[in-house]
Design a protein around this nucleic acid. Structure first.
Length: 414
DNA sequence: CGTCCACAGGAATGACGGGCGG
DNA sequence: CCGCCCGTCATTCCTGTGGACG
């Protein structure tokens, strides 16, 4: 007992005695909405002006917001919405806002359910017809004379998954509503997503548009300075680290969220090693750690058959240099299933799994035409070989097959 | 210039969990 | 409580297709 306790005691004491880096690390978390949003006054003003009619009981225009990740779209919109609702309640107007992230709440049904809940009606998470939920929401809007502002963040995810039927319904909801009004704010980081929309929906949704340009390095630095003031103990953040962090994030599409993540992790690294200040090397290591953590957690939480597909791709890599094609991977996958006494899925399903894995970046897949030799996908690992190896060697199922050598490959090479 | 490969990808199906009206 | 309908998720069925080969 004593050995372990001494070990832990050392860690505890070391942490308590050691230099303190953070005052408040919550401020660096991605969902924190700051009081002040540097370099976004223009957008703040535009959006405010577009929505302000709501305070007089008129519907605000629908609004489409475009900008890369980490350019402050969500923060600005949430900020304006909060203030607007606050003001609305102050003057006794029935104004409501409902913020939804379509990547997290990705079906028509669930979106409508949330909208209903924001008006205070209870809606079961399944069991009702979607249209029924829509009607309930609409009548509640009518009864309460509410002006609701619906924010659909990552709206492209919704349209890609479900089409634009719901958006169409929502944009015309005002037409047959006696009391109550609805306006929509759509947020997307994919401009091409507009092409997926029915022209009627598009024109109605983008009555107004606001664009968020990527931050440049000096702007990111301002943002970081502001947050660092609240989150770090004085003089624990070196100038060099701050500059490097801004520069790295600026190079990566001017993504401020990325910069804040880097800063937070770097701070934790510094704290862990008992350093007095956060310096450049902490920032660099933070970058690596973020990526590695992401990959490891994703790999670990993958469903078994997806793991087997990744594992198959991994095993193929020993033989094929230029990436393997769907058929080969499927063969290896089937052999692995055989080894583990599992029922193999169909090729169609595996093809779907490959697509999903491609989207989350574990695999890189692209369609190629080999003429006579068919139309297929070239697939290779999208992450480092050794991480896959480490994670799967720990896995209860996968460790049995990590050294398996596929027998279906041989004849043709490349 | 037609053929035919080796899949891609849309549509359909089935199982499941759960609300609703009677 | 029952029978019915619903959405969701995971899966299967099956038609469509770009272009090197001959």
């Amino acid at each position: 007992m004593s050995e372990e306790h001494d070990l832990l005691d050392n860690i505890f004491d070391g942490f308590l005695r050691g230099p303190k880096i953070f005052k408040d690390r919550e401020v660096l978390r991605p969902d924190y909405v700051p009081e002040h949003l540097p370099h976004r006054n223009e957008q703040l003003q535009q959006i405010g002006e577009i929505l302000v009619p709501v305070l007089r009981g008129f519907r605000g225009s629908n609004l489409f917001i475009y900008g890369n990740t980490g350019t402050g779209k969500t923060a600005v919109v949430k900020h304006v919405l909060d203030r607007l609702i606050h003001k609305g309640h102050e003057i006794g107007a029935s104004v409501e806002g409902c913020y939804l992230n379509c990547r997290l709440i990705g079906t028509d049904y669930r979106i409508l359910a949330r909208l209903g809940e924001s008006l205070g009606i209870k809606i079961p998470f399944t069991g009702l017809a979607t249209n029924e939920v829509f009607e309930r929401f609409k009548s509640e809007l009518n009864v309460k004379h509410t002006l609701i502002i619906v924010v659909l963040d990552e709206i492209d995810a919704l349209v890609k998954a479900q089409g634009d039927a719901l958006l169409y319904e929502l944009t015309r909801i005002n037409e047959n509503l006696k009391n109550g009004r609805l306006s929509i704010i759509g947020i997307s980081n994919d401009l091409r997503f507009k092409e997926l929309l029915d022209p009627r929906v598009l024109s109605s949704l983008s009555e107004e548009e606001v664009i968020f340009k990527p931050y440049i390095a000096t702007e990111i630095k301002d943002i970081l300075l502001e947050r660092a003031k609240i989150s770090f103990v004085e003089n624990t953040l070196s100038d060099g680290a701050l500059n490097l962090c801004s520069a790295l994030a600026a190079a990566e599409h001017g993504d401020a969220r990325r910069a804040l993540d880097l800063l937070r992790i770097a701070g934790e690294l510094a704290e862990r090693e008992g350093s007095l200040v956060v310096n450049e090397s902490h920032i660099r290591h933070a970058g690596e750690e973020i990526e590695q953590d992401r990959v490891v957690t994703v790999l670990k939480t993958l469903p078994l058959h997806s793991k087997l597909v990744v594992c198959g791709t991994y095993l193929m890599k020993k033989v094929r240099t230029e990436g393997s094609i769907t058929g080969d991977i499927y063969e290896v996958y089937k052999e692995l299933c055989g080894q583990l006494n599992l029922e193999a899925l169909t090729q169609r399903r595996v093809s779907g799994l490959i697509n999903e894995l491609d989207i989350i970046g574990l695999l890189n897949a692209r369609v190629v035409n080999l003429g006579r030799y068919g139309r297929t996908k070239k697939v290779r690992l999208g992450v480092s070989y050794s991480i896959v190896k480490d994670v799967f060697n720990e896995d209860v199922w996968l460790n049995q097959v990590m050294t398996y050598s596929p027998k279906c490959i041989g004849e043709k090479n490349n």
